[in-house]
Amino acid sequence: MTDEQKLVHFQERIDAGEKIEPKDWMPEAYRKTLLRQISQHAHSEVIGMQPEGNWVLRAPSLRAKKILLAKIQDEGGHGLYLYSAAETFGIDRSEMIEQLQTGKAKYSSVFNYPTLNWADIGAIGWLVDGAAIVNQTMLAKCSFGPYARAMVRICKEEGFHQRQGYEIMAKMMAGTNEQKAMAQDAMNRWWWPSLMMFGPHDSSSAHTSESMKWKIKVESNDSLRQRFVNRTVEQAHHIGLTVPDLNLTYNKETRNWNFGDINWDEFWTVVNGNGPCNHQRIAHHIKYHREGEWVREAAVAFGKKQQKQNSLN
């Protein structure tokens, strides 16, 4: 088959709803987009451990500590799982880490915001994981088999995280005035970054149309964002939180919550590396990766010695 015929066949398989597996033929652009997306997703899980880890030592009850630690472990586990999915493309993890540390690979911009009070942990679980679920439920239907399967598994755990995050917010909204103020403060700071997680408007998204054709995405940014807003606004009102958007109105005909303009300048500032914590997150990753170098070297050296000994025996 010529490449052109292969491409036609590939598109037919996609249109028929078949899953593409790592050993199947695929256009270079498909491969590149998925690798970029999966490694970016893996990095997001790993970098996301930092803002949440920021509160592990200060979590206010034994139960809260256990839930938060378990959540962070889930995220790290997702990272491992996704690195493995990316490795099916023939790249190894250390190469991906290098791309992260040099800025060649990105991670979810939302983790470039700081966690400043305990309610931020609630807000991340409820809003950030909530937005991630909407996106990942869509990705579970994507055409690349390993990624779709990873998403099915990951979505189950994110569901727990979202409920646990919401529970933190609900408890604080039922608590003292100081707790309510902290919860509202977290809501004010995390609401817009959560909406930005769905990416630019469909009209200005660089990757959307090709991704849709190949079913890497099966739904547009704006439609996913609207679904998230509809769900979340009512949850916020239910516990007495105000959504920080003066233009928020309910449209009875479309049954959508219409919301105000997203600050795209802020979005691009953070995506391009100048958000409040971009520098800190990467510097932290590099610092501890370097500090662990002697451990990784020791493990390799020990492994080699063992091998040598085994071959002598």
Binding site: M49, Q50, K65, I72, G76, Y288, G292, V295, R296
Partner: peptide
């Protein structure tokens, strides 16, 4: 031990 969160020499050991 929780202080090691996001600071392990490899992700597996962090976990």
């Amino acid at each position: 031990l929780a202080e090691w969160c996001s600071r392990g020499p490899i992700l597996e050991e962090d976990l």
